[in-house]
Amino acid sequence: MRLSVIDAERCTGCQICMFACTRRLGYAGMGKTAIHVKSVGGMEHGLSVVVCRACQDPPCAKVCPEDALVLRKGGGVLLDPSKCTGCGLCRQACIVSAIFWDKEAEKPIICVHCGYCAKYCPHGVLALEERRQEVSNAAK
């Protein structure tokens, strides 16, 4: 399973997903969010939702010198904070810029595809779903 952006055109820019991702850890605010909503040249012209795409062969994990990014079943990576030194190389490797920075912990924030944010998105932009390949594998 992975978090998918179903239709960013429906996004209203409410940032409720960003609050949710932070709240999943018991905090208010947005300091721990692994998902960001950005305007494309002003909110009136639409928004883009930036979150980890759950790569099957994640470039971020490959550049990590400490092996702190462990491949996650279903795509993407899981961070082992005890190994991470906060060097930030993974951020540069992610072409969709989906690795954010936790200033408070000095560590990367990467989506774990838990789907908590999708439960709160009021407008059906996000969903936790199986990737197409998983679906076809299951059908076999």
């Binding site: 208010a28 605010g29 200033k103």
Partner: peptide, 9 residues
């Protein structure tokens, strides 16, 4: 950007 504490999570 930051986190904010609450009285009881």
């Amino acid at each position: 950007n930051r986190t904010l504490e609450v009285a009881d999570k």
